[in-house]
Every structure is written in structure tokens, then in C-alpha cells.
């Protein structure tokens, strides 16, 4: 069987499942009625999204939210790597970092948003929330990656007196990267969801969360669904891009072993 035929064979059941749930959604919307006020149909949702897509306001909101969430993500990745590496080196750092990171993991996003609103402008809320949600995940990934690094190769590096940078490039980074990449993949989905949730509470101007909330206030339910669809699509796109980038990086750093 050719690759294309095999791919089609694999895709068919998923496409069928998607169509099944679209049909369920359509039937449910028809059953509920009220012109889509409570539950818009897939067609109404796509129509609302089609109306939003050509507007500058839609893209401005997407850009606003995306930039802030990705900034929070990037800061958290940098912080998680630095903190994870420091924790592996110094036990005191590990002990000190544990309580705030445990708190960040356990604290509901809503509680944190309300507290954060006391300290920062709502416009920067999604940066802070994205940062605090991603940091513990990346930190854990870095720590797990460092723990996974082949001890025998590290001994070899010590005996051969390999320079620090070579040990880092050829032993430590390839050893730690798979767990780190896995954490980034998980964190990417988390930061997007938590960032938009924060915006719905903080309502910064020109954010996706603000648009979602306004649509709900005006009972423009198809718009609520359209914005949600846009959020889900962007989340999937970002996750796919992250996966692609991480796979390429892993192949380059770790060779065929982890590819």
C-alpha cells in the first residue's frame, strides 16, 4: 500500500468522527432552536467567523493576544531553563524554588488573575498569567531532562576532559532535550488557554478575551462560538508549529536516536 493510500486510510476514521460530531452539533442546535441564541449551529458559527475574518479589529485582537501570550511563554521558557539548570547545580535553589512553583501549579487561573489585577495593568495580564502557567511545566521538563542525561557519557566527558561547551552541546543538551521538548509541547497548549481565560476576567482593551466577553454580553452567541473557534484553531496551529520546530531541533541535536 502506498504512503498516500495509507495516510488516507488513517485519516478516514478521524474525518468520519469529525463529521459525526458536526452532525450531532447541527441536530442539537436545531432541537434547541431560538435562532441560535443558546446554541448556534455549525453553519451560523462559520458565518459569524466569516464576517469577523475580513475585519481589521479581528486581526488586531488576535495580534494583541498572541503577542502577549507568546511573550509570557518566551519569558517562562527562558526562566524555566535558567531555574532548572540552577536547581540541578545547587540544591538550595531547588529547595527555594519548590514552594512558589507548587503554588503556581495548584492555584486556579481565576484566583491568580484577580490577584494580578491588583498589581499590573489588565493589558499585561495575559503575559503574567501565561508566564506563571508555563514556568512550572518548563522547569519540571528541564529538571527531568537533566536527570535523564546519560551519567556514563558524563563520566566519559570528565575522564577525557572535554571542554564545557562540547559537553553541553554533545551530551547535556541532547540528553535533556526530549523531556524539555515534551514540556514545551504541553506548555504551549496551556499558555494559550490560560491567557485567554485571564483576558476574559481582566478584559484588556483589544484582546480576544474582551471580544469573547462582549459577544456574550450582547447575546451574540454565534460570535462567541466564532471567537472560540478562532482560539481553538490558533491553538492547534501554534501547537503544530511548536511540534514541527521541536522535532526539527531534536533531530538536529539528538540525531536519529530521538528523531
Amino acid at each position: 500500500m502506498s504512503d498516500l493510500a495509507q495516510k488516507l486510510k488513517n485519516a478516514l476514521p478521524r474525518a468520519a468522527a469529525g463529521l459525526f460530531w458536526l452532525a450531532v452539533w447541527q441536530l442539537a442546535a436545531m432541537a434547541v432552536g431560538h435562532g441560535g441564541l443558546l446554541l448556534p449551529s455549525p453553519v451560523q458559527t462559520v458565518a459569524a467567523l466569516s464576517a469577523l475574518l475580513p475585519t481589521g479589529a479581528f486581526w488586531r485582537r488576535i495580534g494583541f493576544t498572541l503577542a502577549r501570550i507568546l511573550l509570557g511563554f518566551a519569558l517562562a521558557v527562558a526562566g524555566g531553563v535558567a531555574l532548572g539548570a540552577a536547581s540541578a547545580r545547587w540544591r538550595a535553589v531547588r529547595v527555594l524554588a519548590a514552594p512558589p512553583l507548587a503554588l503556581a501549579r495548584a492555584m486556579p487561573v481565576a484566583s491568580f488573575v484577580i490577584l494580578a489585577l491588583l498589581w499590573v495593568r489588565s493589558a499585561n495580564l495575559s503575559v503574567i498569567v501565561s508566564f506563571t502557567q508555563v514556568l512550572p511545566v518548563v522547569y519540571a521538563g528541564v529538571c527531568a531532562g537533566i536527570a535523564d542525561t546519560d551519567k556514563e557519557l558524563l563520566e566519559m566527558a570528565r575522564v577525557y576532559r572535554l571542554p564545557v561547551l562540547r559537553t553541553l552541546r554533545y551530551i547535556r543538551v541532547p540528553g535533556a532535550f526530549p523531556a524539555f521538548a515534551e514540556s514545551l509541547s504541553v506548555a504551549m497548549g496551556m499558555c494559550w488557554k490560560s491567557g485567554v481565560s485571564a483576558e476574559v476576567i481582566g478584559l484588556p482593551d483589544w484582546s480576544v478575551g474582551d471580544a469573547l466577553y462582549r459577544a456574550k454580553l450582547t447575546l451574540a452567541t454565534p460570535d462567541v462560538f466564532a471567537w472560540t473557534l478562532a482560539i481553538v484553531a490558533l491553538s492547534a496551529l501554534l501547537s503544530a508549529l511548536a511540534r514541527h520546530g521541536l522535532t526539527a531541533a531534536q533531530k538536529r541535536l539528538c540525531g536519529e536516536v530521538a528523531a
Binding site: E152, L153, E155, M156, V159, Y160, R161, L162, R166, Y170, I171, P174, L253, C254, G255, E256, V257
Partner: peptide
């Protein structure tokens, strides 16, 4: 003196070629 060793296990970087591993050690 400065040691070069063959260990009980091979301890080669799995992503590098045989020559790459030798070059890694200088």
C-alpha cells in the same frame, strides 16, 4: 597522566558517527 580510556561500556555519543566520537575527544 592525562587519561584516555576504554570503559566497560562503549560510552559513545549515540548521535555522532564513530569518527565524530573520536573527534569529540580531540
Amino acid at each position: 597522566g592525562r587519561v584516555a580510556a576504554v570503559f566497560q561500556t562503549d560510552r559513545l555519543c549515540p548521535q555522532l558517527t564513530a569518527a565524530g566520537n573520536i573527534a569529540l575527544a580531540g
